[in-house]
Amino acid sequence: MRLKDKTAIITGGGSGFGAGIAAKFIAEGARVMIADINTEAAETVAAELGALAQEVDVSDAASVEAMARTAIDGLGHVDILVNNAGMTHLPTPMEEVDEDAFDRVFAVNCKSVYLTARALVPHMKSRHSGAILNVASTAGVSPRPRLNWYNASKGWMITATRTMAVELAPEGIRVNAVNPVAGETPLLKSFLGEDTPEMRAKFLSTIPIGRFSTPEDIANAACYLCSDEASMVTGVAMEIDGGRCI
């Protein structure tokens, strides 16, 4: 029960890594809001786990503010924020990615971190306590060709994590990131371009441990980083990648 009496918001919690993190947090004693742009997915996972569900577009300020208010009202306060919602563009030569796709990737992967901070950091400062976890990617550390703007957005998240950690440490707020390698999530097909045995084998050959990451892998790391066990850990971008970035 490492998160007993803690409360958490998990964006993108309706599937993939977010749903795995939600399940782990609840098993460890936390009360959780699952926030997702897919309302049905959020409600389904929330019903299964005994959590709150909230529709949110993390790229929209009003929607993020509404999420924060609802969480504070429903949970009493917010101890943990997990910025997990994310998206990518399809593998494409960098100059051929259209502007709408570029804008959407940076709105969901980057602007969302700014918006959730604006909505929830004042609340955490008022309590002199909090943990923020940004779900970045190995793509921000060891980028692959043809995912250029996605790679760049995750590199941005890693830098944002570090600068947030430095600024917020005196306020009692810790900020960390996890860098998953590609996993069995709805984004996998987008990363691969086409989900075929040949493409999977090619990608797996770059991971020394020899498998994709799972929601449980990411959830276990997230639980540690957001728990009081990690009270001296801030500004870390932990690779959960089976050796991919070595």
Score class of each variant (00 low, 15 high):
residue 159 T to Y: 13
residue 230 A to D: 05
residue 41 A to V: 01
residue 32 V to D: 01
residue 10 I to E: 03
residue 76 G to K: 10
residue 44 T to V: 11
residue 40 E to S: 11
residue 97 V to R: 11
residue 28 E to L: 09
residue 245 C to A: 14
residue 54 Q to P: 02
residue 204 L to S: 00
residue 91 P to K: 10
residue 173 I to Q: 05
residue 102 F to N: 03
residue 224 Y to M: 09
residue 26 I to D: 07
residue 155 G to W: 09
residue 166 V to G: 06
residue 31 R to K: 15
residue 43 E to C: 04
residue 210 G to C: 11
residue 73 D to A: 13
residue 125 K to D: 08
residue 73 D to Y: 06
residue 53 A to T: 08
residue 240 I to C: 04
residue 1 M to W: 12
residue 154 K to S: 06
residue 200 R to N: 03
residue 73 D to T: 13
residue 218 I to T: 07
residue 178 V to S: 05
residue 97 V to F: 09
residue 40 E to D: 13
residue 80 I to K: 04
residue 27 A to M: 08
residue 85 A to M: 05
residue 107 A to Y: 07
residue 183 G to M: 05
residue 138 T to S: 06
residue 83 N to A: 07
residue 3 L to E: 06
residue 1 M to T: 13
residue 23 A to F: 03
residue 99 E to F: 15
residue 226 C to L: 08
residue 240 I to T: 10
residue 192 L to M: 09
residue 55 E to F: 14
residue 242 G to I: 08
residue 215 P to G: 06
residue 179 N to M: 09
residue 29 G to Q: 11
residue 141 V to E: 12
residue 84 N to E: 06
residue 207 I to E: 05
residue 161 T to E: 05
residue 79 D to G: 03
residue 112 S to N: 03
residue 233 V to K: 06
residue 203 F to I: 01
residue 207 I to L: 10
residue 111 K to Q: 14
residue 174 R to Q: 06
residue 234 T to M: 09
residue 124 M to I: 03
residue 197 P to W: 05
residue 98 D to Y: 09
residue 104 R to S: 07
residue 201 A to P: 07
residue 50 G to S: 09
residue 49 L to F: 08
residue 147 L to A: 07
residue 236 V to W: 10
residue 26 I to K: 12
residue 28 E to G: 01
residue 206 T to G: 10
residue 156 W to P: 02
residue 229 E to Q: 15
residue 129 S to Q: 11
residue 225 L to F: 14
residue 105 V to Y: 02
residue 140 G to F: 06
residue 201 A to L: 02
residue 57 D to M: 05
residue 32 V to N: 00
residue 89 H to A: 11
residue 112 S to E: 07
residue 25 F to E: 00
residue 146 R to P: 02
residue 30 A to N: 02
residue 233 V to N: 02
residue 177 A to F: 09
residue 5 D to I: 02
residue 3 L to A: 09
residue 151 N to D: 15
residue 208 P to I: 11
